[in-house]
Amino acid sequence: MKKNRKLKPIIIFFLAPALILYSWFLIVPILNSLRLSFYTGNLFKAEKFVGLANYIKLFTQSPFNERLIGAFVNNIKFFVVLCIVQNLTALILAIILTRKFKGSEFFRTIFFIPTTLSVLVVGFLFNLMLNPTWGFIDKILKAIGLEVLIRPWLGDPVTALPTISLIGSWQYIGIPLILFTAGIKGIDQEIFEAARVDGVSQIGLIRYITLPLLKPIIGVVIILTFIGNFTAFDIVYAVASTMGNPNYTTDIFGTFFYRTTFGRGTASFNPDPGLGAAIATIMFFVVFIGVILWLAIFRRKEEE
């Protein structure tokens, strides 16, 4: 480190481009979106200061209050399914794939392929596969004797959201898989050797060595899933449109925000950017609280 009392020109020249662009197009817009939640107006211009009116509308006026609660609950459900199905499966796969066997590299490469697809493509693809006109999944279920499972998976309000969550898990298993694999590989092999010599069983190794040492990575995976999920949009757009079909049962913050702000793809709504900004503000605080909780739970333990 070079110590210097006055700022050298290089510090300014090198920092300024990133700092200016980043402030201009990320920090300022996010703060401004918070501010806009106190205004009404059209998309391009905030016109009138209205105080808390947007929030009051959002929390007390039907159908906005129902949509808000609905989006929040759906996001939570979506998040829980992702954590259980996507992240837990990824963890199990990572534990298996880090034990060296022929083809382990190959399998890891394959399991990442869906992650390279666009969320949109994946949504459309599963939408087509589950389409009753084609009856593709129905025929497979029939063939393996699971006819009881035949139903309009995306049309039924009960199954639509879980189905979308499973589609999301199918696509994004690659990311936690890579993180967990890297984490397990980073553990000192001698710890395992020592424990093995002491007669610790395979399950014991996972329970007492792999999992505790993997805790920071588990934390990272959970917070990434959380942030990604509470700002997701594409998957519901592709599978269930911006309306969160059927009957808003798959509506999440992302689609609610889009619909309210831009009003496109919907006949009955007028775009209301002020109200949209209020939704974005709530999303901001949800993410913010998530990050704080993550720091409190996972980062502190790391330091101990």
Binding site: Y22, W24, P29, I30, N32, L36, T231, F233, T261, A280
Partner: peptide
């Protein structure tokens, strides 16, 4: 301070500033 200022962008998705980004871009 500047380093941590940049780190905020990892945690807070740019999507949340969309409305104002549209205005700035416009």
């Amino acid at each position: 301070l500047i380093y941590f200022y940049f780190l905020i962008g990892i945690m807070i998705p740019i999507k949340l500033g969309t409305i104002n980004i549209v205005q700035i871009i416009n």
